[in-house]
Structure formats: structure tokens, C-alpha cells
Design a binder for these strands. Structure first.
Length: 331
DNA sequence: CCCCTCTCCTGATCGC
DNA sequence: TGCGATCAGGAGAGGG
């Protein structure tokens, strides 16, 4: 299940291989994959065609391709917003490779290396193994919870406003956020992330803390797995009401979630250098170090108590009954 | 406004 | 062997 670290791994892979490439054509093979694009599949395909990828960006679990209009000046004027849902993958494949069983959208990229016809300053810097020649970007999604949609920027952005200096692990190119993602709160790796503001918001919520961690309008990027991991690390029961938890403890919780996601990113980020950008997040690098998720019936790695599982919001929660009591020990 | 429940989807797995 | 039930869960529509 792709959460922030998995989506970021995908973003990096796409950014490394797609920037400078022109999208020749788009083919939508399943209408559900573009259901959030109200004007429909034909509109989406027609409007993307001919645009060039300027950057690949992300907020929370959303990622998007910033595109420049190759016809009337080099401006960032269009964004292809992608959500992977539960099972989405963004694969870069040679055109002669047989279609995947659950292929939903195909984008055909231009032939030749990316430097050819780009801004004149070279295409894909520092990427060995970036495939040259014909290439397809394929959106594969078994459960069809994910999809693509288009957004236009209110004012076309000059390309200079989108910096591409990805210096540290979690820094990405920045620039304006597409309007349709305005409701998505900054994630913990976003320069705009303000943990004091998040804590203040949580202190006003008369709602279970885990529910709030999963609410992408409060803080984004956290899904069921990392929510459980963070709650375990901070020794907080997910059913506790957010407004009953101290500021100190809420900070501890957000710090813990951030730390867990960062280590997952560190592990996952090492293995995407081929042309095959696997997105599934199920490759298992991080699975071995999970402390809560999926561990019902197993001993807590901290205290040895048998971990529990409980239904929650049509999914499952995993927690240690001793480390994460339902109420604080003092009541 | 705030909070919560429901629904969409497919494939693996399990019990009978 | 088959078949129905269950589970996985992100996000948004809609209800209370």
C-alpha cells in the first residue's frame, strides 16, 4: 500500500527518467482510471499530448507531473495529477514489452535521449541507466482505486519558478500546488509543514487520534501502516481522543511518524535505479522492521506482550495493549 | 461546521 | 473442486 515513502520513491524514479521527455500520445484503457477527470478520457489524452515533463512533484500521497507547453513558449501550464490508490504503479517500459494485465493508461514518450530538443542545457543529469530510445509510461492498477486527472495552473508558471535542486533525501522540486490539491495538508517532509499548527489543530479535534492521522487535510502522507507504527512508537492508543492528548505527546507522535517514514524512505530509496520503477511498496524492504502493523498475536518488540488487532474504519489497527493502553495510566 | 459511515474495486485466501 | 465470504484500504460523497 503506497503511503508517503513509497510515493516518494516513485516520484524520484520518475523525476530521474522523465524530466525533459515529451509525451507524444496518451491512451486510456480503463475509464475508471480517469474518473476524477470530469471532462473525460479523450480530453485528458488530447491535452497532455505534445507537452514536455518539466518536473515530478509530490504532496502527501499525491504526485504530479508539471508539464510545459512545447508549442507556445516554455511555461509550466499543466499538471498531470496521479494517485496510486492501493495498488497503482507507474512503470517505465519499452514499447515492445507486452501490456500488463491491469494496464489502465499508456503514455508514449518521445524517442531519443532527453537532451535532444530540451532547453538546450541537457536532459537527465546524473542518471546512469536512464533509458534512451522509445519508452512508455504505464499506469498499472489492479484495484482501480488510483487514477490520473488534469489540472491547469491559474497562471502559467515560468519554468524558473520550479527549482529542481533535490539536495537532500526529502527535498523535491518546489513550486505552486495544483488547485485541486489545495485541500491536502503539507506532509512532514514539505518545507510548508508546520508541526505547531498541526498540533494546534489536533488539540481542537474531538475525534480519535488515529482517524486524525489518516485525515489528509490535517497532515498528509500517513496511511494505515505508518499511523500504527507512529502510535506504537509514541505509546499512544489510536482510539484516544485527539483533544485529550497533551501538546508534548502530540509532538512526540508526529515526530515518531516522521521518523518511521524517513527510515522507510531511506531503505526504499536505494532500489529504483533501473528503468523499471516499481511502485507497489510491497517489495518488502521495510516489512521486516515493522513494529506494529500485521503483528497481531506476536510479542511486542518493546515489552513482549501479545499484540492485538482490532477492526477500525473498515480496516485494522494493530497495537500493544500494555504499551498503548486505552486510557492514560492516570486516567 | 464537525464528525463519522459508507462505497468504489479485484484477487488472494479461507471455511465448508 | 467449487463457491461464497472475507479482507486489504484511500478518498470523497453524503448523512446525522
Amino acid at each position: 500500500m503506497p503511503e508517503l515513502p513509497e510515493v516518494e520513491v516513485v516520484r524520484r524514479g520518475l523525476d530521474a527518467h522523465l524530466v525533459g521527455r515529451r509525451i507524444e500520445s496518451v491512451e486510456v484503457l480503463h475509464p475508471r482510471a480517469v474518473r476524477r477527470h470530469i471532462p473525460g478520457a479523450d480530453d485528458l489524452a488530447a491535452r497532455i499530448a505534445g507537452h514536455r515533463v518539466h518536473a515530478v512533484r509530490r504532496r502527501g500521497k499525491y504526485l504530479w507531473l508539471d508539464l510545459t507547453d512545447g508549442r507556445s513558449g516554455d511555461r509550466v501550464d499543466l499538471a498531470v495529477i496521479v494517485h496510486l490508490g492501493m495498488s497503482g504503479q507507474m512503470l517505465l517500459q519499452p514499447p515492445d514489452k507486452p501490456d500488463e494485465k491491469h494496464l489502465r493508461i499508456r503514455a508514449v514518450l518521445d524517442v531519443g535521449d532527453a537532451a535532444d530538443g530540451a532547453d538546450g542545457e541537457g536532459g537527465v543529469p546524473g542518471v546512469s541507466g536512464a533509458p534512451a530510445g522509445p519508452l512508455e509510461l504505464r499506469f498499472v492498477d489492479q484495484r482501480t482505486f488510483g487514477g490520473w486527472m488534469l489540472d491547469t495552473y491559474a497562471e502559467a508558471q515560468p519554468p524558473e519558478s520550479v527549482s529542481a535542486q533535490a539536495t537532500s533525501a526529502c527535498v523535491q522540486p518546489f513550486g505552486p500546488i495544483p488547485a485541486s490539491l489545495a485541500h491536502i495538508a503539507p506532509d512532514p517532509f514539505d518545507p510548508a509543514y508546520d508541526q505547531r499548527a498541526v498540533v494546534a489543530t489536533l488539540r481542537r479535534k474531538h475525534s480519535e487520534i488515529k482517524r486524525q492521522l489518516l485525515d489528509q487535510t490535517v497532515v498528509s502522507g500517513i496511511g494505515n501502516i505508518y499511523a500504527d507504527e507512529g502510535l506504537w512508537a509514541a505509546r499512544i492508543n489510536g482510539t484516544r481522543l485527539a483533544d485529550s492528548i497533551s501538546v508534548r505527546k502530540l509532538n512526540e507522535l508526529l515526530d515518531a511518524v516522521t521518523a518511521v517514514m524517513r527510515s522507510a524512505l531511506d531503505v526504499g530509496g536505494t532500489s529504483f535505479d533501473s528503468l523499471y520503477v516499481n511502485v507497489n511498496g510491497e517489495s518488502g524492504y521495510f516489512e521486516r522492521s515493522l513494529n506494529a502493523y500485521g503483528r497481531q498475536g506476536l510479542p511486542c518488540r518493546r515489552c513482549g506482550t501479545v499484540m492485538r488487532r482490532e477492526a477500525f474504519m473498515n480496516r485494522s489497527s494493530f497495537w500493544c495493549p500494555k504499551c498503548q493502553p486505552r486510557r492514560s495510566p492516570r486516567g
